[in-house]
């Protein structure tokens, strides 16, 4: 019959028989721990330390307001400041060499109708001055020669 094991009868050790940590482990451990402390981060941003005193609910509320405010501000900024200046179409066209423009119109398959020219000049009255080197009489003669349905745009 087996003898029952009694814990009280067994020699008590201060800890289990486990291998010791590597030599010098406890000398190096404080340095390793100090290197992991987030103190540099905390001291670099002292302006935000007050956040830690707020309740989690209040911090969540402030964060939500900040995010929504950011969206509103970006929306407002994008609405008030046009992405492209008003003079951009003509300015951009002026910058393109004429040969390239002609080449584009010839090769891209784009067709410029009389109606296109009519709408463009109606929207920007001075747009033709840079490239349409004709007198007013010549223009009027050309317009008189147009079919009536195209002339209605003018």
């Amino acid at each position: 019959m087996k003898t029952a094991f009694k814990l009280d009868a067994h020699p008590r050790r201060p800890r289990p028989l486990l291998s010791e940590p590597p030599a010098g482990y406890f000398d190096k451990l404080p340095t390793q721990i100090m290197a992991r402390l987030p103190q540099a981060e905390a001291s670099a941003t002292p302006g935000w330390r007050w956040l830690s005193f707020l309740t989690p609910a209040l911090r969540t509320g402030i964060a939500s307001v900040a995010v929504l405010g950011g969206f509103a501000a970006s929306f407002y900024m994008s609405g008030s400041a046009p992405l492209v200046p008003r003079s951009a179409p003509t300015a951009a066209l002026d910058a393109v060499p004429r040969t390239e423009l002609v080449g584009y119109l010839l090769t891209s398959g784009a067709r410029v109708e009389n109606s296109d020219l009519a709408v463009l000049t109606a929207a920007h009255p001075g747009i033709a001055k840079g490239f349409l080197h004709v007198s007013e009489d010549e223009v009027n003669d050309a317009l008189d020669a147009q079919p009536s349905e195209d002339a209605t745009y003018l």
């Binding site: 289990p16 486990l18 451990l29 721990i33 402390l37 103190q39």
Partner: peptide, 30 residues
């Protein structure tokens, strides 16, 4: 450090695990 390490080591047995956890404990204490 020694008391914390051995307290942890008795629970997880492995030295590397005990080392990681001991460091984590003191970071939390900080």
């Amino acid at each position: 450090q020694s008391k914390v390490y051995w307290h942890v080591r008795k629970m997880v047995v492995d030295h590397d695990d005990a080392d990681d956890l001991t460091q984590d404990v003191f970071v939390k204490v900080w």
